[in-house]
Simulated assay, not measured.
Amino acid sequence: MNTRKSLRIAITGVSRGLGKALSQALAARGHQIYGCQLAVDAESGAQANPLLFNASVTEPGEMLEFAQAVSRDGAMDIVVCNAGVITARKPAWEIAVEDWQRVMQVNVLGVVNTLHAFMPAMLDRRQGLFIAISSGWGRSASWGLAPYCASKFAVEGLIGSLIADLPDGVGAVALDPGNGVNTEMLSICLPDEHEQYISPAIWAEHAADYIVDQLYRQNISGSCTVPHPGL
């Protein structure tokens, strides 16, 4: 039985993939999880942990409402900006401008909207950890994924700058999931390879402990990677 303090954790993009698996793994460890996604059905909305809310990271007003709803009993200990999108592999000039805009709106401005919604309460308490999911493709570019790579390089820069702005007690991390995870997003850009990678559920068992026991409890900030066995 886990006797350590239960944390209050908000996660965006919990309908599938890494967000769903991470929210379930953290809830199983006794933490109270508040998740947001684009649509919450009646059955899912009735559960208590993770507690789900309908909100889009691309809508500043919706993210503010989400933050206000989950923070009535106190500020979040951890916020994880997980919501993200990707495009199929194509040369940069063949990817439609609308697709570029969508990736930037979700992957970059979604982090900014979440930051605006949740950071003031962390600053008032002078405690908390703000995490934005990055990628190995946010540190080393790959062919055919210009919008995604650009967005994740932006996340790395955003978090690096944020760290310089934050007071002691409040941290920020650009978090690479590490080594590839077999998600729907990975199947879009690696259709012939994605099944060889570990499942989101297995990844989340490692990520949940790393986020809480290492990043949060040891007050770590910076550009980090979830350690897990990989393939």
Rank of each mutant, 00 (worst) to 15 (best):
Asn179Tyr: 10
Leu175Pro: 02
Asn182His: 08
Asp209Ile: 02
Leu175Phe: 08
Leu186Lys: 13
Leu175Gly: 05
Ile188Lys: 14
Asn179Lys: 13
Gly171Glu: 03
Pro200Asp: 08
Gly171Asp: 06
Asp192Pro: 09
Ser199Val: 15
Ile198Cys: 07
Gly171Gln: 05
Trp203Thr: 06
Glu184Asp: 15
Ala207Cys: 03
Asp176Cys: 12
Ile211Trp: 00
His194Glu: 13
Val170Met: 13
Ala204Phe: 07
Gly178Tyr: 07
Leu186Ala: 12
His194Phe: 15
Val170Trp: 08
Met185Ala: 13
Val181His: 02
Tyr197Met: 05
Ser187Tyr: 09
Gly169Lys: 10
Met185Glu: 05
Leu190Met: 15
Glu193Asp: 13
Ile202Gly: 00
Gly180Gln: 06
Ala207Thr: 08
Ala201Ile: 08
Ala207Phe: 01
His206Cys: 06
His194Gln: 09
Glu205Gln: 07
Glu205Gly: 02
Pro177Lys: 14
Leu190Glu: 06
Ser199Trp: 12
Ala174Lys: 06
Asp209Lys: 11
Ile198Pro: 00
Pro177Arg: 10
Gly171Asn: 09
Ser199Cys: 12
Pro191Ser: 12
Ile211Ala: 03
Ser187Thr: 05
Tyr210Pro: 00
Gln196Met: 09
Glu205Phe: 03
Pro200Phe: 14
Gly178Arg: 02
Asp192Ser: 15
Asp176Phe: 07
Val181Gly: 01
Asp192Phe: 14
Glu184Met: 05
Pro191His: 10
Ala207Asp: 01
Met185Val: 10
Ala208Leu: 10
Leu175His: 04
Pro177Gln: 14
Pro177Met: 10
Ile202Glu: 05
Glu184Thr: 04
Ala204Asn: 03
Ala207Met: 02
Val170Leu: 15
Val170Thr: 06
Gly180Arg: 04
Ala208Arg: 02
His206Arg: 07
Ile188Asn: 04
Val170Gln: 14
Glu195Ser: 09
Asp192Glu: 14
Asp209Arg: 15
Ser199Pro: 00
Ala208Trp: 00
Asp209Pro: 00
Glu195Asp: 14
Ile202Asp: 04
Asp192Ala: 15
Asp168Trp: 13
Ile198His: 02
Asp192Arg: 15
Ser187Gly: 11
Val181Ile: 11
